[in-house]
Computed example of a mutant assay.
Amino acid sequence: MGMILRKVKTLSDNEKDTTRIVGQVKWFDPVKGFGFVVSESGGPDILLHANVLRNFGQSSVADSARIEIDIQETSRGVQAIEVHRIDAPESASAAVLADFAGLDEEEIRNAPLEPARIKWFDKGKGFGFANIFGRDEDIFVHIEVLRRSGLSDLQPGEALALRVIDGKRGCMATEVMAWENASTKDE
């Protein structure tokens, strides 16, 4: 008796149904490597894995940040599969960092985003330092700048785009964004 073999096509993760939603980060722990998002339209908590966030160019996200993601239903629940946008929490964007008081807001907004790498960052101390590629000076990075940028923590060696000004503490980051946003002098 002969066997009949039939090829069964399985859907790859990219071929499964996805839905784009807007929600709010409930919490995210970069040490554990995951957190959860709550959709604006309700429903179950959505798992946000660190790898999905890294594909967006970030290693963390601030609690209460507004986030736009593609989600997918899996056997283990609803999970984020791609991040499209992250907006800082509203309370963080209203906060004014004392270090920027009295500085020209137009100058801060128009400073170029430059490619940088984090030297170290201590969330407990509330600050750390970075270096812009090709320069030796340290760039001061305050935790409030992270929160206003929609982030909660930074890892040594992490590549980012920093908006940098000459401030009260020397060279200071005023905004932190994904690496892809950095300008290059060759453009």
Rank of each mutant, 00 (worst) to 15 (best):
T10V: 08
S12N: 14
D13A: 14
D13H: 10
D17A: 15
D17Q: 15
T19Q: 15
R20L: 08
I21H: 01
G23A: 05
Q24P: 00
Q24H: 06
V25I: 15
V25H: 11
D29T: 01
D29H: 05
P30D: 02
V38T: 15
S41M: 09
P44A: 15
L48S: 09
A50V: 13
V52A: 03
R54K: 14
G57H: 06
D63G: 07
D63H: 08
S64H: 14
S64M: 06
R66E: 14
Q72V: 04
S75Y: 07
S75E: 13
S75G: 09
G77A: 05
G77S: 07
E82T: 12
R85M: 10
I86Y: 04
A88L: 03
E90K: 11
A92K: 02
S93C: 09
V96W: 04
L97Y: 15
F100T: 05
F100Y: 11
G102D: 06
E107Q: 13
I108Y: 07
R109F: 08
P112K: 10
L113R: 13
L113A: 14
P115N: 01
P115G: 02
R117C: 06
F121C: 06
D122M: 03
G124P: 00
G124Q: 13
G126Q: 07
F127H: 06
G128Q: 08
A130N: 06
A130Q: 02
